[in-house]
């Protein structure tokens, strides 16, 4: 069997070997639901769409995804299994990718379990299911970007708490960079080109575009490149920190 698939399966099973996975999924579903209904005003809006649901995903992921990502490499380093994994006949790239994909698939499972809300909105009204679909795609891509960032920062330390905090901060900064409030501030002091560049780097701007139903190739490329770059950085960081 392909070593990526083998490591992927082991990792994904590993999530469900402890109660952590179930706790995560339950918390994710409760938070996603309560944010949508209480803060998003799902019913009060009176609109058959899921924007009240997706709009809170960046904030939900900001804390939940680093909790998944923090153990990716920090735990391997702490328990010494990194030495085992990297002396098996697989390349560093395969190991990094397999572990990332397993974590991403796990978040994907949690996200997929929100399907009742999709059914609900279809029962209540006649929503544009294409927009809802792109909303899920955007949400999933953003979770992937957060995870890739977390993977890299988790490789930088063997302390999971440090990895968690670093990841939250990094993701927070990348999210903020796209908010009108922040961009407005930059607009007063920086030329428009630079402001556009900052907003272009922001995860939020690209997520927002996709979740509004505009599946632009550029946004997808942005996420793929972001994930790729952070995973590449993960491999470099592991190489640098291996000896400690």
């Amino acid at each position: 069997m392909n070593p990526i698939a083998t490591v992927f399966r082991r990792e994904l099973k590993g999530y469900f070997a402890t109660p952590v996975a179930y706790v995560f999924i339950v918390i994710f579903l409760i938070l996603a639901g309560s944010l949508t209904f209480y803060f998003g005003g799902f019913y009060e809006r009176g609109q058959a769409d899921l924007s009240a649901f997706f709009i809170y995903h960046p904030w939900l992921y900001l804390f939940l995804v680093p909790a998944i990502a923090m153990r990716l490499w920090a735990e391997e380093r702490k328990s010494g299994t990194i030495e085992l994994l990297l002396t098996l006949p697989i390349t560093m790239f395969q190991a990094v990718l397999a572990k990332f994909l397993a974590a991403w698939a796990f978040v994907g499972i949690a996200l997929a379990l929100t399907f009742p809300i999709w059914i609900t909105v279809n029962y209540l009204g006649d929503p544009d299911n294409g927009v809802i679909f792109t909303g899920y795609v955007g949400s999933f891509l953003m979770a992937g970007a957060f995870l890739a960032i977390g993977s890299c920062l988790s490789a930088a330390t063997r302390n999971q708490v440090v990895a968690f905090i670093l990841t939250v901060v990094a993701c927070f900064l990348l999210l903020l960079a796209g908010f009108p409030l922040v961009l407005g501030f930059f607009q007063t002091i920086l030329p428009q080109g630079v402001v556009d560049a900052i907003s272009g780097l922001s995860l939020y701007a690209h997520f927002d575009a996709i979740s509004k139903g505009v599946l632009d190739l550029r946004d997808i490329v942005y996420f793929v490149l972001t994930i790729g770059a952070w995973l590449y950085a993960t491999a470099i960081v592991i190489d640098l920190k291996k000896a400690d």
Partner: peptide, 25 residues
Amino acid sequence: YLPEGAPSYGEMTPRAFLEFIADVR
């Protein structure tokens, strides 16, 4: 290779762990 301290994935059973190694290899 047996690394120092014989690290392995603690949540796995020896059977699952050895099967994993067999598959990777």
